[in-house]
Design a protein around this nucleic acid. Sequence first.
DNA 1: ACCTGAACACCGTTCAAGT
DNA 2: ACCTGAACACCGTTCAAGT
Lengths: 223, 223
Amino acid sequence: MPVPARPARGRPLLSHDRIVDTALELLHGLALKELTMRRLAQALDTTPAALYGYFRSQEELFAAVATRVVRGIELGALEEVADWRERLRLWARAVRSRQLEFASTVAMAQISPHIPASWFEVTAPLLRALEMAGLSGKALIDTARCFSRIVYGSILTELAQDPYLLQCERAEAGAALEHLTPSAAGQVAAILPYLGVQDNDALFEMTIDCALRGIAAGLPPPA
Amino acid sequence: MPVPARPARGRPLLSHDRIVDTALELLHGLALKELTMRRLAQALDTTPAALYGYFRSQEELFAAVATRVVRGIELGALEEVADWRERLRLWARAVRSRQLEFASTVAMAQISPHIPASWFEVTAPLLRALEMAGLSGKALIDTARCFSRIVYGSILTELAQDPYLLQCERAEAGAALEHLTPSAAGQVAAILPYLGVQDNDALFEMTIDCALRGIAAGLPPPA
DNA sequence: ACCTGAACACCGTTCAAGT
DNA sequence: ACCTGAACACCGTTCAAGT
């Protein structure tokens, strides 16, 4: 990440980029709620009001930050891969690793509705991979949307979950055991050892595998 | 939904349930950001400070609201269905329709990390359906988590998207057309008519179909 | 025991005034 | 043109004081 440097001599002191850079830097150590206009201004050695010369609102600023994160998704490696499945897998991994790096910005898309505008750069490689799989037209774009939803959805739910909740999962299942019919209780008991822990890396790969099998099985038969 | 009634005569005027009821009612007409302690107190004809006798913080109150929403997911119809695929489909639809009803509460899970504690009631039917498909042990719970991620992920991304973004999608693709190699431009042009509109109902069904095929194809071969 | 009123430490945003 | 200082209308939360 480029270190936001104050301009050498000439004015203006602020710039669109410098503000976004600093916001991203702060987000490495701050939750989204703690990234306030006042704090950001302080980190930039300026006044909250000065930021409004570059962004009409906090929402617009957040959108710019989210856009920057999406722009940083590294998709160059896809082109060297011949298998469409492998391309989709790489796409999913690239999106996830970038979004996890700035975990708090994922929630921005939830808070501010104006999602990053760099849609094309991210989606084009996905579309190309699905074309290689034999899709075209409406089926192509719809499948891309499905896959994208699955990938982003996995990331969102992964980030929404916290360790405390996972503990609850086990405790709740254990508590429910006593009020169940014997057969149902047996089913739950068989599950119990796997509750309360979760390997997010493995679960993500498994979800992608599931999606890939689903896409492959839904492909039109090769003529 | 039960209308929150003031208690007939005896005190106290407030209660855990009456507060959550009123919050849910307000959320039918208010965005999550607009559901403040002050506004909620006003709707309850009381003081913001009074709410802190029932919830330690706004976060805890939001968690209670989200829990109530999850509790309202109607899963009774699943039991009458023999096919596991159809059960999973019904599960997904039930979750979606309830969460869409209180769209703003979906973001609560993003904001407050303490997700609803009624995990078991919602997940148990899902686990049972996957058992019918032939899964057990770790594969069972992991597949349930995958499916749940796909379903919740689809809902989250659906809600995060707004019409304005979809317009951008088309505009951006159109703009990108000019800077592309002829062959790439041809690919994008073929896609263009399908951008900018989106049938969320159909896309959700398609995503679920994809997941079901993926799960079926990943099942252990029947002995 | 339950609630009120007032206060505290924050917010985003605006706008006249400075340079 | 760019930025500052001060203000406005809100927040969540706390706590002494009331009943």
